[in-house]
Structures are given as C-alpha cells and as structure tokens.
Design a protein around this nucleic acid. Structure first.
Length: 154
DNA sequence: GCCAACGTTGGC
DNA sequence: GCCAACGTTGGC
C-alpha cells in the first residue's frame, strides 16, 4: 500500500466539503498536471491512504486522512464543456486527464500545520516532497516512515 | 499583493 | 530540440 498527500484549496474544496459529500466520497478531479496525472493513473490504488492538505489559505496544513476507493479513471470534467476543467485536447477515446475517488477516513485531531511539519524538515521529515523548495505538485507520494511520523504530530 | 519556483507553450 | 515568455502555484 502506498501513501500520498493531496492538496486542495479550502476555498474550492475543503475537509468540510468532503465531510458533507455523499458517502463522504469525492472524485479528485480537475488535476491538470502531468506528473500528478501519471501518479493517479498508474500508481495510486484502491486502499492507498492520503493526507488531505489545505493549501493557499490562512493556515496551510494537513486536515484529514482519506482512502483511495477507486483506481485512476478518466476525469469526467475534462470532457464536460460546462466544467471549468474542460479540456478540448482530451477525448473520450483518448482521455488526457485522470482522477481517483477518495473517501474521508477521519479528520486529524488537530490541523497539522505546514509550520509544524517544517520543524522536522531536517530530521524526521527530511526528503518529504511537500517541504522541498518550490514544490507545487498537488499529488505527492509520502514515505511510510514520514507518514507514521506525521501522525505522531497530531 | 509580492515573488520564487516551476510547468507549458510556441517561435525558431 | 532549445529557450524565452508566459501562466500558475502557493507561502508569506
């Protein structure tokens, strides 16, 4: 099983949005970055766990844990002309973008802030992609040992 | 709002 | 295939 970190802007889709979603499940749609797409399409699998991270907000940090409940599949918003994520370069025959479905496992007891995570950037969390300078990927892998340590910060 | 860092685009 | 210009991300 693999571990991940998924970024979302709470003004667009927050942990509250997920909590109130039907079956507490959502399609992780609208990702338009090739590296992130490749991970969702090729590597993320049903049963994997991911941190739900709030970005571009007053208090950036990990707000919850989600489980991948559906392997990568073509992102329906890419084919939807009414969607802001519509992409004319994507077709039904040859989909360009992919998404997975995730379900809320639980909120973290507290928000594990980016500042808190940074405190360990040179020891326990050395190498965590989220903390790497200029890292902007919205989907990143998390090593098991990083995952376990982060959970001790709750 | 600023700006560093990175990805994408398109001319050549 | 190179690379400058542009757009986006995201912390501060």
């Amino acid at each position: 099983m693999n571990h991940w970190l998924l970024k979302s802007e709470p003004s667009v889709f927050s942990i509250d949005s997920l909590e109130s979603a039907s079956r507490k499940t959502t399609a992780w749609e609208g990702v338009r970055n090739f590296q992130a797409r490749n991970m969702m399409r090729d590597t993320m699998r049903k049963g994997d766990l991911a941190f739900f991270y709030h970005s571009s907000c007053a208090e950036p940090g990990i707000a919850g844990i989600v489980e991948v409940v559906r392997d990568g599949y073509p992102d329906p918003t890419a084919a939807d002309k009414k969607s802001e994520y519509y992409d004319a370069k994507s077709t039904v025959i040859k989909p360009l973008w992919y998404c997975v479905d995730v379900k809320l496992v639980r909120r973290t007891r507290t928000l594990i802030s980016l500042a808190k995570l940074r405190e360990h950037s040179t020891d326990h969390l050395d190498g965590l992609l989220l903390l790497r300078r200029g890292s902007r990927l919205s989907v990143t892998p998390v090593d098991k040992q990083h995952w376990d340590f982060i959970l001790t910060l709750e």
